[in-house]
Design a protein around this nucleic acid. Structure first.
Lengths: 211, 211
DNA sequence: AACAATTTGGTAGTCACTAACATTGGAGTT
DNA sequence: AACTCCAATGTTAGTGACTACCAAATTGTT
């Protein structure tokens, strides 16, 4: 029994997915999100509408940016529980953004920073997408709370963790908005650090030597 | 030319609106949000589907809780600009919640605390509504930033204001979730104050004598 | 070549939401 | 009271996102 089912199949599937998303983002940017039907995207990508739905369960998913949930959760889990919650979370967000942008200057469209900016702009400017985007933060928030681990010494630990996580994520979102407005000129992790400092005061949020 | 157009007409319209929303929340709670069609709501309320759409532009609006944007904005605008941003915002949120719940123990369904809790629970448990709910915060965030006023001494004042506002609102949301989970047993403003303290440290957030 | 599994296409249907038009019933006027 | 005006409602037909179901094509394996 093979586990590595296929390579060609996966390649084609991934390419189809990229093609669909690329055309979708292009059309959304050109004509607007609401003015572009899934059928238009399918026609432009040269596939049937059904195929679009198979690759992207909803129209919104054609634009969504994954938030590196895994990477952030890992960094938080690896951080010292002795530190304040917002510092543990804030540092993870800053570091995740740093690795994100550092590896994104590739010629490949799917991972290019420009493509990321295009999707981010769409998400910010389109109400329907904004709602979904924010909803996505909810899942990330839960992942952060889980990664923080259970602090059994504090009775309201979970409540505090949720509060800190949502506050940090909302602050990061502000930085993302600014980043998109500036067309990516300013470094994203720097912006996130600045936003966190503005919201929470001058905590030592720079991702230096971790305790 | 009359300005006080009518009383009976407005009464009927308001009553129709309340009836529709009451049946909607009831059906959503009983059968689930997605499993309930607008037609079902219309039938239950004894009106046509069109009437539902005229009173509530979207299905989500049947559940949405307004966040007392005006009240919060007024309190922030009245606060002293010398204080830290999160304290100005946090106090306004706490005080708004206090006035909200204090006046909500009326027998009237539309303003009853139970009805508010029902809608809140729906919003939290239903993904589609969660997204819209969070999107609503975005508008409130903008109102808060506007109410804070322009701090011309700081170059990144607007950015800092957005960061602080979104962080505070996200924290308040955490408190709302807890409040709904506890079925309103704990005082809402107390919960919000606790969440803010957890996220931002022990700032003096109690709405005592304002500076 | 033959078979199994995965991907894709087509059809029909549900549901949220909109636009255009007809109808009803209060509100103010004569 | 009769009449006009206007807001509220109803009706119909349509668009578009999304799903369920079935058929066809393509790929990996025997």
């Amino acid at each position: 029994m093979m586990e590595r089912h296929s390579t060609l199949r996966e390649q084609r599937r991934a390419e189809t997915q990229r093609t669909i998303q690329a055309h979708a983002v292009r059309l959304f940017t050109e004509r607007g999100y609401d003015a572009t039907a899934i059928n238009d995207v399918a026609d432009a990508a040269g596939v049937s509408p059904m195929t679009v739905y198979r690759h992207f369960p909803t129209k919104e998913d054609l634009v969504l940016v994954d938030q590196h949930r895994q990477l952030i959760a890992e960094r938080i889990a690896a951080s010292s529980p002795a530190q304040p919650l917002v510092r543990r979370i804030g540092r993870a967000l800053i570091e995740a953004a740093a690795t994100l942008t550092s590896g994104r200057r590739t010629p490949d469209l799917a991972t290019s920073e420009q493509f990321l900016l295009d999707r981010l702009r769409l998400m910010i400017s389109t109400p329907a997408l904004r709602a979904k985007h924010l909803d996505n933060y909810y899942a990330l928030q839960q992942a952060i709370v889980d990664a923080l681990g259970d602090d059994t010494t504090e009775p309201d630990a979970a409540f505090h963790a949720h509060a800190a996580a949502s506050a940090c994520l909302a602050t990061m979102h502000t930085a993302l908005v600014r980043w998109a407005e500036d067309d990516g000129k300013t470094d994203l992790s720097t912006l996130i650090a600045a936003a966190l400092a503005a919201a929470f005061g001058d905590d030592d949020l720079t991702p230096g030597a971790d305790g």
